[in-house]
Design a protein around this nucleic acid. Structure first.
Lengths: 210, 210
DNA sequence: AATTTAAGGTAACAAAGGTTACATAGGAAA
DNA sequence: TTTCCTATGTAACCTTTGTTACCTTAAATT
């Protein structure tokens, strides 16, 4: 575990902190689709991502979903952070977007390290900052963009996360993430194909030039 | 200033911290409409609200606005917090919703106090947490609600902030906050009036039963 | 091979919200 | 008082998005 830690976090955490994390943290490997956290659950630990990606979702009262953002290597879940202190319930759902490696740190350590290590404080603050900005971007997109632009952003982001130009999702799945309907997404995807930006196949989409 | 600090923050900060804040902070009184922060500006200090309310807005590339949330007594602007560390620019605009009293703390103190005072760390973390949750609520509203529900929520929140059942805004101003158009807002307000929920007047709206 | 299931294509229609245009009314200013 | 500006009311129309319904096709299952 210490190797993975040094590789992913060695440049931001001092050695003493890395060692503390290694002592109390537990290494975890989850496969695609694994639900790490659900709305209303209590938070057990704080995840430090080593590799892979986690999809963070919001749900409304009718069970409709909306993709908020992805967590990647070097990220942590800031929702977790504050849930530690008060024992608040999670406001979001987190699902592994692909096979993912991470280290779970017990929540009690958070405050202890915040007093002790400047690098840890910076990490926490930066993490919050990043999450706030991701949320703002998502919000911008929903508030200011029409569905066609949102779909293009979605495809781009998905391709970036998966490091390729193939998006392995059905139209229905995309519709869930964007909180729209399958017919609308199919319609817009077809337009993008006619413009030569993508190619549609069964169960996957190929990005040509977005 | 120390009186105001003790009154608003005495129950969460220890005396030593209160004294430090009083030493380096500057008391500020701003009137309704005063712009405390704009998008792209660098952050000078961190505001601790004593009384009044601050409206926090987001703007898109066309200059269209969207109300994110209000800051009230006991709040601070978490956007400021991280801008301190890296010298990032503000992502939001902050405007006094009414006459407001606040204390500005130099940004350098933030990290120093985070190491020294547990109460300060908690305050910062809680502040982030609150802001994240407010953003999530705003996002929910935009993503999941139709305009009529958003308008009702808006009127309720506005009435709560202003501690009364009168909303002193034109339809155009409401339209800006909700990122809609004046005609749409007038149309929906008229419906609410016909349902007996509000009464419309020139330049103000009276809430009857929402 | 025959059957079933899931994914995607498409038409027709409905609803929400945005746009344009113009009328009216309340106040402020001249 | 008269004029002018701003806020509001409202109709007509358009675009975007959502909904329902039905069809085709690829792939999995029997």
């Amino acid at each position: 575990m210490i190797q993975e830690l040094k590789q992913g976090y060695g440049h931001i955490f001092e050695e003493a902190l890395i060692n503390e994390i290694a002592q109390v943290g537990t290494f975890k490997e989850v496969s695609e689709g694994y639900k790490l956290m659900d709305i209303g659950e209590y938070v057990r630990g704080m995840p430090l991502l080593i590799s892979g990606a986690i999809k963070v979702l919001r749900e409304d009262k009718d069970g409709d979903e909306l993709l908020l953002y992805y967590l990647e290597k070097g990220d942590t879940c800031s929702m977790t952070l504050t849930c530690c202190m008060g024992d608040a319930k999670s406001e979001i759902r987190a699902i592994a977007e692909m096979d993912t490696k991470l280290i779970m740190v017990p929540v009690q350590k958070m405050d202890e390290w915040a007093a002790k290590y400047k690098s840890w404080r910076n990490f926490i603050f930066e993490s919050y900052h990043n999450r706030l900005n991701e949320l703002l971007n998502t919000l911008d997109s929903i508030a200011f963009d029409k569905m066609d632009m949102r779909l293009i952003s979605y495809l781009k982001e998905k391709a970036r996360i998966n490091e390729g130009n193939i998006i392995k999702n059905t139209h229905q799945e995309i519709a869930y993430d964007l909180h729209s309907s399958r017919v609308v997404i199919s319609r817009l995807l077809k337009k993008l194909e006619q413009m030569g930006k993508i190619e549609l196949h069964r169960n996957f989409i190929e990005i040509i030039a977005l």
